[in-house]
Amino acid sequence: MNVNIVKPRPEHVSGIARVCDVGWRQTVESILSDKYQNQNAAFWYNHDKVLSDIDNGIYPHVALIDGEVVGAIGGAKTGPERGDVFVLYVDETYRYQGVGRRLLAALTEEQIADGAFEQWVSVEKGNWRGIPFYEARGFELQREQKKETDTGEKHVTLAFRRVVKDMI
């Protein structure tokens, strides 16, 4: 399997939207209602929003196999020494094969080069895919955050942090 981690281009919009929409829904399928999932996915993963986020550097990398998007990561520097991972999804056919690890490494390298000392990620409580992935890469739980959607649904996200300044 030849995976290429590249900067996204406009032709990758549909693939990014698909991978993120499906991955996010799998993360919250037993936690948040279909109504909320549809509303949220329609906002974040519509083609215009994804294209805008590519243009603004929010999606710095995608994983391609034979030209097809099989993974995407979103993130940015959110403070002078802080980088955040906003989203990281891999098509389920290619999970557990190093794609997510490579996407995270590419984002981390960029954030460190831009002065990041620490990196944060928020994960839905009960996300049995995401939590072990981030813990295996040195992220440590900092706090639980109780949230309520605009449809009145309650859920909990977990904030994880790791020190990255000496990783490169």
Rank of each mutant, 00 (worst) to 15 (best):
Q39E: 14
V69R: 01
L51Y: 08
E29R: 14
T93M: 05
W128G: 02
R25F: 04
Q26N: 14
R25D: 06
F86M: 10
T151W: 00
L141F: 13
D34V: 13
V156W: 00
V90A: 11
T93S: 13
A76Q: 12
G138K: 05
I5M: 04
V3S: 04
V6D: 13
E153Y: 09
E92P: 02
W24I: 10
V123P: 10
G79T: 03
V3W: 02
V50I: 09
K125W: 00
Q39L: 15
I131E: 14
F160A: 11
R143G: 09
R129T: 14
P60K: 04
G23D: 13
V19C: 08
E29T: 10
Q26K: 13
G115T: 12
V99C: 07
D34M: 05
M1Y: 04
L107I: 07
D48P: 00
D53L: 01
Q111M: 13
E110A: 13
A41G: 08
W120R: 11
D53F: 04
V19Y: 08
L104C: 07
S30G: 08
R162W: 09
E110Q: 15
V50D: 02
E81N: 07
V69A: 07
Y59P: 08
P132Q: 07
G138W: 09
D150C: 02
T108W: 00
N127H: 04
V3L: 04
G23C: 12
H155P: 00
H155F: 15
R143M: 13
F160Y: 15
D91P: 09
H12T: 04
E124P: 00
L64G: 02
K165A: 15
P10M: 06
V13T: 11
K165N: 10
E124K: 02
V163M: 11
D150Q: 05
G74R: 07
Y89C: 09
Y96C: 06
A76I: 04
V50A: 03
I31P: 01
G74P: 13
D21Q: 12
E148F: 01
N46S: 02
K147E: 13
H155Q: 00
R129V: 15
R161G: 05
F43N: 03
